[in-house]
Design a protein around this nucleic acid. Sequence first.
DNA 1: TATGAATGAGGCTTCATTCAT
DNA 2: AATGAATGAAGCCTCATTCAT
Lengths: 191, 191, 191, 191
Amino acid sequence: MSTKDLILSTAKDMISEVGFHKMTTANLARRAEISEGTIYRHFESKEDILQHILDNFDEKYQQLAGQCRARMSHNELSIEDLLGSHFAFVDANSADIKIVLGTYSILDLTRRSMARFIERMRGLFEEFLTRGMARGTVRGVAVHDTGMIIANMFFGLMRIKLYWPEYPDFSAEAVDFCRRSLIFVEEKERS
Amino acid sequence: MSTKDLILSTAKDMISEVGFHKMTTANLARRAEISEGTIYRHFESKEDILQHILDNFDEKYQQLAGQCRARMSHNELSIEDLLGSHFAFVDANSADIKIVLGTYSILDLTRRSMARFIERMRGLFEEFLTRGMARGTVRGVAVHDTGMIIANMFFGLMRIKLYWPEYPDFSAEAVDFCRRSLIFVEEKERS
Amino acid sequence: MSTKDLILSTAKDMISEVGFHKMTTANLARRAEISEGTIYRHFESKEDILQHILDNFDEKYQQLAGQCRARMSHNELSIEDLLGSHFAFVDANSADIKIVLGTYSILDLTRRSMARFIERMRGLFEEFLTRGMARGTVRGVAVHDTGMIIANMFFGLMRIKLYWPEYPDFSAEAVDFCRRSLIFVEEKERS
Amino acid sequence: MSTKDLILSTAKDMISEVGFHKMTTANLARRAEISEGTIYRHFESKEDILQHILDNFDEKYQQLAGQCRARMSHNELSIEDLLGSHFAFVDANSADIKIVLGTYSILDLTRRSMARFIERMRGLFEEFLTRGMARGTVRGVAVHDTGMIIANMFFGLMRIKLYWPEYPDFSAEAVDFCRRSLIFVEEKERS
DNA sequence: TATGAATGAGGCTTCATTCAT
DNA sequence: AATGAATGAAGCCTCATTCAT
């Protein structure tokens, strides 16, 4: 791994564990086993490291969104698949998401990044709903707003999953909750 | 207003605006027009100020929960009322909630406070669902998990409302989303 | 007890226990159950309190010295009596002495007070030696220097007694040490 | 000189001159012509500096004690030599000793260091007495207690020497005082 | 590229002293 | 006489950033 990537991945772990303010350049250097000066050879500032982390994260989410869209265009994506792939994404990228959730309220940098992330999710869910309505499987709802609502419910559950791991997993119940609200009941019954 | 309350309310504003770390004791003193030393006549530490804010907030939410429970016991509380009173609560206490949302991931103090808050909300929603199911107006759902899901959807929407106020208000649509998922359709039609 | 004396005696205890710097006016007021402001009605400053304590101590030692001189003038004071009365004085005034020993190196105030104290002791011991030599019971020694040496041996032992109370009591052995050095052996044999 | 040693030696001078509390990190940095932050690159805290000074001092005394013991084992060490080498040690390490004498009553750190120092001196003097008694040059005395008494007399004289340098030097007289008390008179007469 | 010592601004907190009541 | 809130200077320490090697 290049020194730059080493710094990036170490910083990602540390910020997600202790927060941006409590990761100091001294801590970071010690944990990455480099010198403090080296950090500044690869990044302009501490915030610049965060910027790179957030940019990488955005790319990863765009990949997921692309895959979902591809499957949607072949009518191969159920609501379970859509939400399920998102839950899996959270599990695979928990450090990034903890960083986003932990700093959006104090750093403009992350605030913008999170806005972009939410907007991408909302757009994807909106597209899902629009296609479903066109095919007659989804009830008639306000797609823009409802996309936002699902995105945010999703965010809320992620927070619990990441910060209160002692709670059981609500994923399945959450999918049911959405299904009941969105999908015409005749196609599937539940207990 | 007593000096203690002045410090408390100034700190509440500042923390919600810039975050706990960026509210320094020097800033706080300047904005409250007192000296830095005075802060420590009324509070043991900077964290102690936050503790007081969080305790006050918890009390306020317990009042709301108490009122909701009272109305529930007279069957006077629709899902619109329940969620509506919560949206109103957020508007009235936006600074407190921004503080909770902005620091739970970095301060154990707030982490515990937020856990308490979520648990209170979940409990209230669970009670609402249980009563509705007994009366036959709410579908059979897993009340514990579903309470959590609603609480977290709610949290997600609050975040948008508080940090991206440029977005339109999703409250009404969110109520509909829940209603569709939870309430038997015969009693009400939607567009 | 007057408020002034209450402050004085509380301060004496505190300074001897924790040192002058660690006795704060806030601590002192709390322990004496008065307000901080009251201290300044009776004393000009924190150092002024110490000044009073030291002055009182000096008076008490002058009384002891006076009594010793009175008994010396009647030839009623053996070296055991002289040192013994000093050891007793230390026990009765341990707080004052701890204060002197604990602050002479950092406060000019006490430095002067301690110099006065040592000089008084030296003078008393010198007088004792001079009389003893005149009577033929004490060897011929340099009275001025030897007075100083005894005074300082005495100080050294006080320090142990006060700060390392876990050590056994060396008083008797110290008296023997001095006796051997000063008193003609024919009048008493030792093992 | 390395920066660490510069800090150490500057701090040693300052603490011995004005006391531990009155040497502030700002003062120290200014006098050593470094920045305050630099202090903390080399030491964990202000107390840590003191710890290093005390440890160095302990090492130096252990060297002296080792040399004395070596000469004792060849019967080459008179009481004049023993006390004389200690007086010389004080002159050469006056700053360290002032620090010990000035802070043992307020800092546990130094209290322990001083206890160690006294105990080492006592042990050395005890060994001297025991050998002397075995050889028949020293009177029969309680070696443990007497070692302590000499050590403390010595400490007392050091204090005068260091804090009241205007006094004449009592060293020679002190050696005589001890000699009279300890050494069999037949081998030497005094005036 | 990498190091790590040095910087200095700024953070939180303490404390002797003052002053209106 | 007594109170106790308020002050502000100063104390210890941290940390992002720079720079000579």
